[in-house]
Structures are given as structure tokens and as C-alpha cells.
């Protein structure tokens, strides 16, 4: 994979979520995504950060989160990778809960899957978890899905 266009490390503090999502929104807009798509990216990243801070780091505010961002050219979009050093989580637990079960909490993973075009959780061999998400511009995403359908 090529060098990310942006690579940064943040502390696991909820008050940093607003500036991070604003920055990612701006970058996604620059990459050609529309306002709705930028909003989806902001919300998905917000949910991922919330999960890392709350469940991974148990609200410790001095742990580290690494965020890497790539602008995608063909098709247009963005890829965002988030790494942490939190304890490993079994991947089958990262599927989101049934929405018919109306209760507080547990919506984050469902939202990430709903908002992004691709979502991939993995355990980092060096410790911690990795989440890689991609959001494509609507026209590109439609073509991409059509190609998958055509090839299947």
C-alpha cells in the first residue's frame, strides 16, 4: 500500500473527536465526495473512535490512536485506517447488534457498516486492533457494486 496522505497520532480523548471528524470531512470533500458522503465518513470515524476509547482503552485518556488517510483516485474516495494498542477483540464480536433490540449502546459497529462501502477489522500482530474503512463517491460505488454483481 502506498504512503498515506495523512498520518497522525491522537490521544484517546473524546474532545479530540470533533476536530478529527472536521478534518476528515474536509479531506473527503477535497477528494470529490459530496456533503452526505462526508457526513457518513465523519459519523463512521466518530463511532470507531468512540469504540476504541470506551471499550478498547476503557476511557483512559492518555492512550494512543493512529489514523492514516489515503485519497483514492480510481474510483474516487477515501480509505481510512485506525490503529490502537487496546486488547484484541474477537472479530465475531464486531458485527453489531440486531436493531430490533431497542436499548442504549451497541449501535456503533452497525452504523460503521451501514455508512461505509467497505469495513475490515483485524488484529494487529504487534498488538492492538486495526480498522480499515473505505468510502467511495456514489457514482463510483454504484459502478463498483455493479461490477461485483456482474463478475459473481
Amino acid at each position: 500500500m502506498s504512503e498515506p496522505h495523512i498520518h497522525m497520532r491522537i490521544l484517546s480523548r473524546p474532545e479530540l473527536m470533533a476536530p478529527v471528524r472536521a478534518m476528515l470531512c474536509e479531506l473527503a470533500s477535497r477528494a470529490g465526495l459530496n456533503e452526505t458522503e462526508c457526513g457518513h465518513i465523519a459519523l463512521a470515524i466518530d463511532e470507531a473512535l468512540t469504540n476504541i476509547i470506551r471499550h478498547g482503552y476503557k476511557n483512559d485518556s492518555d492512550s494512543h490512536i493512529w489514523i492514516s488517510v489515503w485519497e483514492l483516485e480510481n474510483p474516487k474516495g477515501v480509505r481510512i485506517q485506525m490503529d490502537d494498542l487496546a486488547p484484541h477483540v474477537e472479530l465475531e464480536k464486531l458485527k453489531g447488534r440486531e436493531l430490533d433490540d431497542i436499548r442504549p449502546g451497541g449501535l456503533g459497529v452497525h452504523l460503521i457498516h451501514s455508512l461505509m462501502d467497505s469495513v475490515h477489522f483485524s488484529k494487529r500482530p504487534e498488538g492492538g486492533m486495526r480498522l480499515v474503512v473505505e468510502k467511495l463517491h456514489a457514482h463510483a460505488a454504484a459502478n463498483s457494486h455493479a461490477n461485483v454483481k456482474h463478475n459473481s
Partner: peptide, 8 residues
């Protein structure tokens, strides 16, 4: 803007 913690 509201995220899932707001929904909760």
C-alpha cells in the same frame, strides 16, 4: 450532528 452516544 449526533452520534450513537447521543442516540443512547
Amino acid at each position: 450532528y449526533m452520534d450513537s452516544s447521543g442516540l443512547a
